[in-house]
Write a protein that binds this DNA or RNA. Structure first.
Length: 289
DNA sequence: AGTATCCTGGAA
DNA sequence: TTCCAGGATACT
């Protein structure tokens, strides 16, 4: 699922409800999904939430952290405990929302449950089991291979100058460079497709042949699109849900992603789908050059 | 640079 | 039944 905006959304939401909560117990229902000793986190308090690339970090007291990578279908869903007396007075709107939601406690794809002393719970749910959690010392996070290999981040450490330099040094198709977390971190398939449409660049273009102007335009498109995507709480074209179990709304605004055959909103030409680096790639064959 | 792989489920 | 899916890695 999640690219930078989706993980950022979850981070911001969890930070709004989970800071200073103390872990009471952890239920591991599918052992392979988590590495390290989950019991080490019992009694620890959540002191910070961070994101590194597409990885979420929950920092706890005592120098321990819980690293989470959602990969394709992972979800982290927070459920506040609701006292029995609140049940009867819950608004109709709230009950409707819950009806359409999964019962995360009972669902077969819930693999880890973190219980807090408050009674609140955090569910790790992952249909395809590609994601992972890792209990790790906070000071050792930078040694994780995934973290050590991350390139500069969109919306933070990446400057247009650095972006230009990275692209000028790669002969790969631009879309593949944008998705390579070792070169640039944060973008995945959806936002690479969308940003290339925005900047009117053919995804197959060799990165090192792009003009400075095109690169500057692409950088600006990325910043704009990623910021807007965070405001829209991410893209739920399929499995993604935010930390409250809700869908994001970015998918309502896709220009090319999953729009094969539909008309380009800029020039009316049918959006084309090809395979690039093994991934579905959508673009307008007329206005992306 | 390509392709298989970890998994499950929805759509064609 | 086959193909496809917001990722990343380990192979050839």
């Amino acid at each position: 699922m999640p690219e930078l905006p989706e993980v950022e959304t979850i981070k911001l939401q969890l930070a709004s409800v989970l800071l200073n909560h103390t872990i009471k117990s952890i239920e591991v229902r599918f052992g392979r999904i988590i590495s390290g000793d989950a019991n080490l986190l019992i009694g620890k308090k959540i002191i910070n939430l961070r994101r590194l690339g597409k990885m979420l970090l929950i920092d706890l007291s005592g120098g321990w952290s819980l690293a989470v990578h959602l990969k394709m279908t992972g979800r982290l869903v927070y459920k506040k405990v609701r006292p029995a007396f609140a049940e009867a007075s819950a608004g109709k709107e709230v009950r409707e929302a819950e009806k359409s939601d999964i019962n995360y406690d009972k669902d077969k794809h819930t693999h880890v449950v973190v219980n807090f002393t408050s009674g609140d719970r955090l569910f790790y749910h992952d249909q395809r089991k590609f994601g992972w959690l890792r209990v790790i010392k906070t000071k050792e996070i930078n040694e994780l291979p995934y973290v050590a290999g991350l390139g500069p981040e969109f919306l933070s450490s990446l400057t247009v100058k650095h972006f230009n330099n990275i692209l000028k040094n790669s002969r790969q198709p631009i879309k593949q460079v944008l998705m390579d977390q070792k070169k640039l971190s944060g973008s995945g398939n959806i936002y690479a497709n969308e940003a290339l449409w925005c900047a009117k660049i053919d995804p197959r273009t060799k990165a090192n042949t792009l003009s400075d102007g095109s690169i500057a335009s692409l950088f600006h498109c990325f910043e704009t699109i990623l910021r807007q995507a965070i405001k829209w709480q991410g893209a739920s074209s399929r499995n993604y849900r935010d930390a409250f179990g809700q869908k994001g709304t970015v998918q309502k605004h896709f220009e090319v992603y999953e729009r094969e055959g539909a008309k380009c909103r800029r020039c009316g030409t049918a959006i084309k789908k090809i395979k690039l680096g093994g991934r579905g790639t959508y673009f307008c064959p007329a206005c992306q050059r």
